[in-house]
Design a protein around this nucleic acid. Structure first.
Lengths: 342, 342
DNA sequence: TTGAAAGCGCTAACAT
DNA sequence: ATGTTAGCGCTTTCAA
C-alpha cells in the first residue's frame, strides 16, 4: 500500500531528525517563516513527505491558545433537532457558513442549543476551548444566549439583531424594506383590500415585517391593514388565510410573512375558489425552494442568506483575530422576485 | 456582573491551590476517580465553582490522544454547498447525528468534501487530530473517500453501503424491500401497466431501488417494466414522466425513486389531464416533508433517516472506543406510507 | 490515598 | 539564520 513505516505517528522531532535540522527550524518551515535557508526548506519539506507528518492540532492549540475552529450554534426555541434541520432557512444559513469557512480551512462544529441546559453546555464548550468563537443563529427575540456570550467575553456574532440591546456584532436583513417592497407590489397591482399574515410575535423578523408592511401601506394612504397571526408553518398559514377570508371576504391582496405560510394560504385560496392573482394577489417572503415550485409561482421577497452567513463568519473571524474590534452590524437588502402570484 | 476575578483563565493549578491539594488530586476529582477522600472531593468541587474552572480541551487531548469530537463529512459529488444543505435528506441525517451526539456532549464538525482537494483536506483534518473519526455521508458509488479513510486506518462509518467492497462499517436501508413494498401496492391496486422513474445510476440507492422493483414485479408475473431515468431533482421527474407518458400512453401506475421526482411527475400527470390515482397511481420514496404536502398526498416509502444517523454515530463511537471491533453493517427496514396517490 | 514529576507535541523567546 | 530551551495545561506513572 502506501509508505506506512513507523507505528507511532510522526512528530516534528522525527521530521527534524530526517531533515537534519532542529525542531525549531522544522517548525519554521512548516509555518512558512521567510527567514530560513532555501536548502533547509527543501530538506524539511522532503522530510515531511517521507515521514507523512501532519502537525498535531492539540499541541498547537495548547501553545498558542487558538483552536482554529468555530462553533455554529443553532438556538431554536426549545424545538427538536429534526425540526431545525428540516427548515430550509437553517439549511441555507448552514450551507453559507460551511462553504465560506471551508475556504479558510476551518470546519464549524454544530451545536444545538435548544434548552437552558444545552445553552449552558454550549457556553462551556467554547470556554473550554472547543472553539475560538461562535456563530449564533437564533430567531427568538428573548434568546438569552447572545447575552451569555457577551457576559463571558467570548467572541460571537449573531444572525439577526439581538432582542435586547447587546454589544455584539450581527448581520440582518432589512425586513422593513422587504415588507415595503411587498406593499408596493400589491398597491401597484391595484389591490384595494390588502391584509397580511404575520409570523410569531416572539420572532423579531416577524415583528419587523409586519411593522414595515403597515408603515409602507400607511405611506400609500392605507391606514388599516387586517392581520392574522401564524407561526411560520404551512399549516398556520392555512388557518390564518381561512380566518382572513372569513372576516374580510372582499380581500384582494395579502402579504404573507414567509413562503411556507404562503403555500398554505395559496392552497386555502384555491380551495375557496379564489383565483390567484386575479381575485387575490399573494406576496410571500424568503424565496424558498418550495416557493419557486408552488402553483402558481409565488411572488416573494428574496434574502441573500448565504451571503449573510458568509459575512457573519467573516465578522467572527475578524473579531477572533483582533478582540478589540468594535461590534459591527451589516444589514442586507432584500429583493422582490416576481412570479405569478402577484 | 458575575464573579470574574482573575484575568487569565483558571487552570487546574489554581483549583488545586484554592482547594489546598495537589494538581493530581484535583485532576482525579474532576475526572471522577473513586479513590479520593470525600472531604477533598468537596474541597475541590468548591474550588472549581469559586474559580470558574473549565478543563482545557487541548491539554487533555494532547496527553490522552483523544479529541472527543467527530467529523461529519458530506461528500456530495462535487456539488455546491447550497445544494447539499438545501436537500432535506442531508438535513434529516445531519439532524439525527447532531441530536444523538448532543446527548454524549459531543458536537460534530461539518466537513464538506465536494472535490478531490476537499477530500484530501478532510482526511488531513482527521489525521491531525481535528476529530477522532468520521461519519461519511456520501451517495456516489464511486466516492473514493471511504477507501481513503480505511487506508489511513482512521475510524469511519458510512451512511449507505460502499460502492466497492470495503472493510468499513455502515448503515443502510433495505432498498429492495422498499421497492418491493411499492410494487406490491401498485399491483394490489390493480394497475396493469406499471413503469418506474429511477434515480442516477451512479447512486447505489437508485440502482437498488430499480433492481428491487424489477425483481418484485417479476415475482408478480410482470417481467417487463419500462424505465425513465432522472437525477433525483424535481425537474428531472417532470421530464421523465413526460417521456414515460409519450412512450407508454396506457400507463396506469408508476414507482418514482424519490419524492422530489414524484412531485414533478405528479405535476406533469396533472398537466396531461391524468387523474391520480384513478388514471395513474404513483408511489414515491423518502416520505419527505414536501411529499406530505403534495396534492394529492403522496403514497411513499419512508426511511427512518434519523434513527439510521443515530446508529451510525453509535457505531463510530464504539469503533473509536475500541479500534479492534470488526466492521458491522446495520440495515433498516422501510415502511409503506399510504396517502392518496396510490 | 496522595503528591512529585515526567512528559504529550508544539511554538516562541532567547542565545548564538 | 539557526539552535536551545522553557513552557502551554493536563494526565499518569511512580514513590511515599
Amino acid at each position: 500500500m502506501s509508505t506506512k513505516s513507523a507505528d507511532r505517528k510522526p512528530t516534528l522531532e522525527d521530521v527534524a531528525l530526517v531533515a537534519g535540522v532542529s525542531r525549531a527550524t522544522a517548525s519554521r518551515v512548516i509555518n512558512g517563516s521567510k527567514k530560513v535557508n532555501a536548502q533547509m526548506i527543501r530538506d524539511v519539506q522532503r522530510a515531511v513527505k517521507t515521514t507523512g507528518y501532519v502537525p498535531n492540532t492539540a499541541a498547537r492549540t495548547l501553545v498558542n491558545g487558538k483552536t482554529g475552529s468555530i462553533a455554529l450554534v443553532l438556538s431554536g426555541s426549545d424545538g427538536s433537532a429534526e425540526q431545525v434541520f428540516g427548515d430550509p432557512f437553517f439549511g441555507r444559513v448552514t450551507g453559507g457558513v460551511v462553504k465560506h469557512l471551508s475556504n479558510e480551512g476551518i470546519h464549524p462544529s454544530l451545536v444545538l442549543a435548544d434548552s437552558d441546559e444545552a445553552r449552558a453546555k454550549a457556553i462551556s464548550y467554547v470556554r473550554r476551548g472547543g472553539a475560538d468563537g461562535a456563530l449564533l443563529v437564533s430567531t427568538h427575540a428573548d434568546d438569552p444566549l447572545p447575552g451569555l456570550f457577551v457576559d463571558e467575553r467570548l467572541p460571537a456574532v449573531l444572525f439577526a439583531r439581538p432582542g435586547r440591546p447587546t454589544p455584539i456584532s450581527f448581520v440582518d436583513l432589512d425586513h422593513d424594506k422587504g415588507a415595503a417592497l411587498a406593499a408596493e407590489r400589491l398597491v401597484a397591482r391595484g389591490c384595494r383590500n390588502i391584509a397580511t399574515i404575520s409570523g410569531p410575535p416572539a420572532v423579531l423578523a416577524a415583528q419587523d415585517r409586519e411593522k414595515g408592511f403597515r408603515q409602507a401601506m400607511a405611506q400609500h394612504g392605507r391606514p388599516y391593514v387586517p392581520v392574522a397571526i401564524g407561526n411560520f408553518t404551512r399549516e398556520s398559514g392555512e388557518v390564518a388565510m381561512a380566518e382572513l377570508l372569513r372576516d374580510h371576504p372582499s380581500l384582494d391582496g395579502v402579504f404573507v410573512a414567509n413562503d411556507l405560510m404562503a403555500e398554505g394560504a395559496l392552497q386555502v385560496l384555491r380551495d375557496h375558489g379564489r383565483r390567484v392573482p386575479d381575485d387575490v394577489a399573494v406576496v410571500g417572503f424568503d424565496d424558498s425552494l418550495p416557493a419557486r415550485q408552488a402553483e402558481p409561482g409565488l411572488t416573494t421577497i428574496a434574502q441573500p442568506l448565504e451571503e449573510m452567513a458568509a459575512e457573519m463568519a467573516r465578522l467572527l473571524l475578524a473579531r477572533i483575530a483582533d478582540p478589540t474590534v468594535q461590534p459591527t452590524s451589516v444589514i442586507f437588502a432584500p429583493r422582490l422576485v416576481i412570479r405569478e402570484s402577484a
